[in-house]
Nucleic acid binder design. Structure first.
Lengths: 335, 335
DNA sequence: ACAAGTATTGCATTCGTATGCAAACATGAC
DNA sequence: GTCATGTTTGCATACGAATGCAATACTTGT
């Protein structure tokens, strides 16, 4: 029982003009006299006419649509990033087509749908892109910008924060504060951000002549991080400091230490996170962490994507934005 | 420098068949022989052909797209709801067009864009719908389902949790635990969910012969809730219990009481929230709250929307799903 | 080999809007 | 009023795929 929608032709008939005239009333730059415009708009109002974006997209060959691929929407960092991206693109007259993928990065089906959807650009938030798809995007000159994820394929732009140096700082700082049994809690083994944070961290420890006491993996999830914490503290001597690959897991560590092991942070164990999500600043945690410039990252990525769409084919860019250590009080000896 | 995309006609030419044949290879139910299908698929593979969804939508008059309007994506409750909705619709072969609106509910521009986008249905998460737009959706027989928001217009379906009885329970429970100076912390004044929670709460208090000690408004935001808490505890006698309209604010209350007033929860002040977001169960808070059946709400709403799309025009439904009190230890005297 | 039936194919048209082109019109200078 | 210039308008076509219809190619039974 699909109700037939009002077309520009019907409006034209009512207004006594041609369909072209109606069309021109709805394209900002077209040439149309005030008199006919008024007639047309009045007729359109009467009929409840609205231009059909799909038909418009077909003829202009531009969908004004961006595909956004997100994983980990449960992580506030990415929820907030998505919100910002949406704001940006809405203001530019673009629509967002949302695709959620699971963490395991099975983007197969989704990528096909994106390519068929005629999106003009692809924004990837914390989701990986299989190399063949990256190549296909390049072939079709569909710009892709990834936030916080890298792909080993040329032609794709990337905006990340300086994960390596963030990890590096965390390592140095923990050593400087006198820790010696320092553990690392990684996120997803497949994530490049986690890998760089880890690398910087381990390099820093090595530089200081300290070796990593233990490594665990928490998949960026609260419950997995709790379990990892239990494993780390199962037998003495336990770590005296933990660097977690994101805040979400760092909080889980703190909660678990306090409630299950009766350990205090930072008196017994120091904890550092990564991201500086709002939770990190809550008084209960006051988490020392590495701040990613979230807003700047998403603004940069969005701007970049838009530029590449407009300029046809810009050469891809790899940007790394600086991180900022945020010293609170989850590491002992902080001022 | 828009690269021309491969069309079904080109594939047809290469495969030595008609464009119709190519089209039929990509519609599951069409009649096509295995031989030509193979030829066509091979040609399509060689050229990297992908059917153009926009053209398909135009001719079939179905966009297979749902518009999702969200506000408060920073609230994990809605981020998780969105994630679930996305999962559901992706599985059904629908795409999600995402629209974020600010809390003040200025949906003007956005609603126009949605109507022009040819979305087949509209899912509203915690966002209100201006009455004229609701009417226009009804006129065009575009189904609308709202989650946790009501609109005073017939024709729109609504799925909510039982906000009234949730608030009612909170009121009764606080009185039963011996509280007498009970305050209410509302969310947005414009939100219908908050209004019902408040109403149930006040009715319960009245029933018990207790009057509400104070009311404040926290706009569902952490910092606003902190400020409201400061106002509530500015002068003695201060409340001995607070019911916050959602968990997010309840947590803010607890954090503020502990860090700024040195008050303990629940020994000095009891706190109840609403939603049962993951944070509520963290050991640091162990928040007594009213659980909304989040997954069930979104599943119901999505199913409903899809039914209404498929059956043309189903009569709109108002569903209220039961809430479940979750007693933890942020109210004194809990077992 | 033939008729009748079925399965596959191509032709032509359609969806709703945008736009190049040429015709029609308005404006202004003289 | 005439001509030149500039503005508006309608016509016709295009975008890329889906589909009713008629034509053709296969089956199968005899």
């Amino acid at each position: 029982m699909k109700k037939k929608s009002v077309t520009s032709r019907e409006v034209a008939q009512l207004a006594g003009v041609s369909q072209s005239a109606v069309s021109r009333c709805f394209s900002p730059k077209a040439s149309i006299s005030k008199k006919t415009r008024d007639k047309v708009l009045e007729a359109a109002r009467q009929l409840g006419y609205r231009p059909n974006t799909i038909a418009r997209s077909l003829i202009t060959r531009s969908s004004r649509t961006i595909a956004v691929v997100v994983s980990q929407l449960d992580n506030p960092f990415y929820a907030l990033t998505l919100a910002k991206a949406s704001e940006y693109f809405q203001a530019e007259g673009y629509h967002l087509l949302l695709f959620l993928v699971s963490d395991d990065g099975n983007t197969e089906g989704v990528m096909s749908e994106i390519l068929e959807s005629q999106a003009e650009g692809i924004l990837m938030l914390a989701a990986s892109l299989a190399t063949p798809f990256a190549q296909e995007c390049v072939d079709r000159s569909i710009p892709v910008v990834m936030i916080n994820r890298t792909v080993d394929s040329a032609g794709v732009s990337q905006v990340s924060s300086d994960n390596y140096h963030g990890g590096h700082w965390a390592g140095r700082y923990l050593v400087a504060q006198g820790h010696s049994r320092i553990a690392f809690l990684n996120g997803l083994p497949t994530s490049s951000t986690g890998a760089y944070r880890r690398l910087g961290f381990l390099d820093a420890l090595a530089l200081e002549g300290v070796s990593c006491w233990a490594e665990e993996c928490g998949d960026y999830r609260f419950d997995k991080a709790s379990e990892a914490t239990r494993r780390l503290f199962a037998k003495s001597p336990y770590p005296d400091a933990i660097f977690a690959a994101n805040d979400h897991m760092a909080i889980a560590v703190i909660e678990t230490l306090r409630s299950e092991f009766g350990l205090r942070v930072p008196e017994d164990v120091s904890v550092i996170g990564f991201d500086d999500t709002p939770v990190a600043s809550w008084p209960s945690f006051h988490l020392t962490t590495v701040r990613q410039p979230r807003e700047e990252m998403v603004a940069t990525a969005s701007r970049l994507l838009l530029e590449q769409i407009r300029e046809g084919q810009l050469s891809p860019v790899q940007l790394t934005l600086p991180v900022v250590p945020v010293i609170r009080s989850s590491v002992r000896g902080a001022v």
